[in-house]
Every structure is written in structure tokens, then in C-alpha cells.
């Protein structure tokens, strides 16, 4: 009879591995905070903490969406250009609205509404092309990435699109004002992360994303509408990009071809650092949030100290990404070795 063997050796081992995988990113963030504080106590000053959280909100919100796409076995490279494109369109639409009916709260709401529609639409296009068009997500989103980037360059005529001064005054508080001590962008980040966590861990949709990313055939044979779920992940991603753009535009009140450059890589990096597997099947929203905080904290620490030039920000981030993934894989490898020894 094939009774599975209770081997005592693997139990504590497994517990350890699980700890390392879920708590690893959090541990890294804590170490980073200690390091930052010891290098410059200003790091934990109130102003800097809110600044850090606000900065991480853009990447963090986008990364929550990316967690779904990646968990379901996809990838979206277009988010950075999509953000720039949506920001540009928002400014053009709001400026046109100011011209025709003057600056008011409605101008801003119109811009926000258009941003949501554009984000959802752009996500749907990515999703539709990958599922119904049966083109690899990498190719589709590489294509749309180029399209959005050149569209914003075209609309800005190679320069910068600036929001009408009147509208800017009305819109400004969305980025700069606070509610119970935390700036609005941080609240948006918190709400998006919480909703994302519930969606991933407590709904059928989240379970389906993991199933599809883990094995698409199993998902199909288990009565899951694979194309629909996949498309929804891209729509969700588009929605997250649009939310991030809505809180980004009032920061500078402008958009140019340099807006959102490399955001896609930072978002993917945040997801991976957080413990989600790039090949899909396993997604962790909490990890993604921590990943976004880690990435922002690195830049922030470099700004506050003179030890390493701020120009090396990308290099430090790169090292952290590779190290994070190596640690995760390393724990997998010990797991496999243990299995072989059985």
C-alpha cells in the first residue's frame, strides 16, 4: 500500500524554508531600515518617512497589479509608457476642458475618469492580444510599450505637456495633502494593497490566477475560463497604472517622454523581491508591497549618505534583486536536495 512516508527530517526543515520565503523580504526591509538609520538618523525622521512612503506609492500600486499578471503566468512591460501616455492624455483633456468651461473640480474629475477608462482600455488591449491573439505577453507588451512611449513623445511634441495653472491648483492636494498624518498617495497605496491581498487570497479569482500560472492545462481541465481570467489580470494592471498616474500627475503637473521610464522594471523587481515567482503560480501581495518599499528605501538611503554615489542607485537595486532571488532559489534547492535524500 502506498502510504506516504512520514519522514521526521523534513518537517522542521520545511518550517524553516517557509519562514525564509515569507519573512525574507520583511527581514531585508528591516535590515535596510537599521542600515539607513545608522548611516543617517534623519532617515527615520517624520518628513523622510512620509516622503519615502509617498514615493513608493507609484511603483507599489503598479506592482500590486503586476503581481496578478505575473502570478497568472504573464508579464506586462508596457506599464511605464502606459503611465506616461495616460498622464499626457489626462493633461491634454483637462487643459481642453479648462479652455471650454474654466478650471473647476469637475475638470479634475473628468481627467481622473478619463484616466480610469484609458487604463482599463489599455489593459484590455494587452489582455485581448495575448489571449485571443495568442501572442506571447512579452511581445505584446513590448509592442504596446513602444507605442505608448512614442505617442506621449508625439503629443508633447518632444517636449513637456504642462497642466493649466488653474487646474493644477485644484488638483495639487491629491498629491501634497494628508489625511490623519499620511499623504493621500499613501492611503491609495494602502487601500490598493489591501484590496489586492483580499482579491489574491480570499477570492476565486486569485486562486484561478495561481492555478493558471502554475499549469494552464490543469486550469483549463478544471473548468477555469483561462482567457477571461488572464485578460482580467491585464485590466487590473491597467487600472492600477491609472490609479498611480492619478496621484502622480499633481506632483509635477506635467508629463513628458521621460515620465515613467523604467517603471515597468521597478514594478517587476518589486514583485520578484517580494517572493512572487516570475514563472507564475505563486503570488504574494504583501511581499510586493515590501519589495516596493525596499526599492524606494535604497534610493532614499543613497540620497541621505555620501558613501555611495546616488548615480549608483540602479546598481545597488540590481544587486538587491539578484540577491533576493538567489536567496529564494537557494531555499528551493535545499528542498530538492532533501527530497533526493529521502
Amino acid at each position: 500500500m502506498s502510504v506516504s512516508v512520514p519522514d521526521t527530517a523534513s518537517k522542521p526543515h520545511k518550517g524553516f524554508r517557509l519562514d525564509l520565503k515569507t519573512a525574507g523580504p520583511l527581514l531585508a526591509l528591516i535590515l535596510l531600515i537599521i542600515l539607513g538609520y545608522s548611516l543617517n538618523p534623519l532617515f527615520l525622521g517624520e518628513g523622510n518617512v512620509t516622503n519615502l512612503l509617498t514615493r513608493s506609492a507609484f511603483i507599489g500600486i503598479i506592482a500590486v497589479g503586476a503581481t496578478f499578471v505575473i502570478t497568472a503566468g504573464g508579464i506586462d512591460l508596457s506599464v511605464g509608457s502606459m503611465a506616461a501616455f495616460i498622464a499626457g492624455m489626462m493633461i491634454i483633456i483637462m487643459n481642453a476642458a479648462v479652455d471650454s468651461m474654466g478650471a473647476s473640480i469637475w475638470t479634475v474629475l473628468l481627467g481622473i475618469g478619463c484616466s480610469l477608462i484609458l487604463g482599463i482600455g489599455a489593459g484590455f488591449i494587452n489582455g485581448f492580444l495575448t489571449t485571443k491573439g495568442k501572442i506571447e505577453a512579452f511581445i505584446v507588451t513590448l509592442g504596446t510599450m513602444g507605442i505608448y512611449r512614442s505617442l506621449i513623445t508625439y503629443f508633447a511634441d518632444g517636449g513637456t505637456l504642462s497642466l493649466n495653472r488653474g487646474a493644477r491648483e485644484i488638483y495639487r492636494p491629491v498629491y501634497y495633502d494628508s489625511f490623519i498624518g499620511l499623504p493621500y498617495p499613501v492611503w491609495v497605496f494602502i487601500i490598493v494593497a489591501l484590496l489586492g491581498w483580499v482579491l489574491m487570497n480570499r477570492t476565486a479569482f486569485g486562486r484561478y490566477c495561481m492555478a493558471i500560472g502554475s499549469n494552464e492545462q490543469v486550469a483549463r481541465y478544471s473548468a477555469i475560463k483561462v482567457d477571461r481570467v488572464r485578460t482580467l489580470t491585464y485590466i487590473l494592471q491597467g487600472l492600477c497604472v491609472s490609479l498611480a498616474t492619478i496621484i502622480y500627475v499633481p506632483r509635477l503637473g506635467s508629463a513628458s517622454s521621460a515620465t515613467g521610464v523604467l517603471w515597468e522594471l521597478e514594478a517587476i523587481a518589486a514583485v520578484i523581491i517580494g517572493g512572487t515567482m516570475l514563472k507564475g503560480g505563486y503570488g504574494r501581495i504583501g511581499g510586493t508591497v515590501i519589495g516596493a518599499l525596499i526599492l524606494t528605501a535604497i534610493g532614499n538611503i543613497l540620497n541621505l549618505t555620501d558613501i555611495i554615489s546616488n548615480y549608483l542607485n540602479g546598481a545597488v537595486q540590481g544587486v538587491i534583486i539578484v540577491a533576493a532571488v538567489y536567496l529564494q532559489r537557494g531555499s528551493f534547492r535545499t528542498g530538492r536536495r532533501a527530497k533526493k535524500a529521502e
Partner: peptide, 26 residues
């Protein structure tokens, strides 16, 4: 093809058992 089409090999027993009928557990 239980490994390729039937079961999610990386997941535990529970998600596998209910995957086909997840709507029943909402």
C-alpha cells in the same frame, strides 16, 4: 494525465481538490 492536466503539483491538497468547484466554496 494527472501530472500535466489533472493536478497542480506545487499546490497542496485543498486547492487541488476544490479547483474544479471553487464556486461552491464562496
Amino acid at each position: 494525465d494527472r501530472k500535466g492536466r489533472g493536478l497542480l503539483l506545487n499546490a497542496g491538497l485543498q486547492p487541488n481538490l476544490t479547483l474544479l468547484t471553487l464556486k461552491k466554496h464562496l
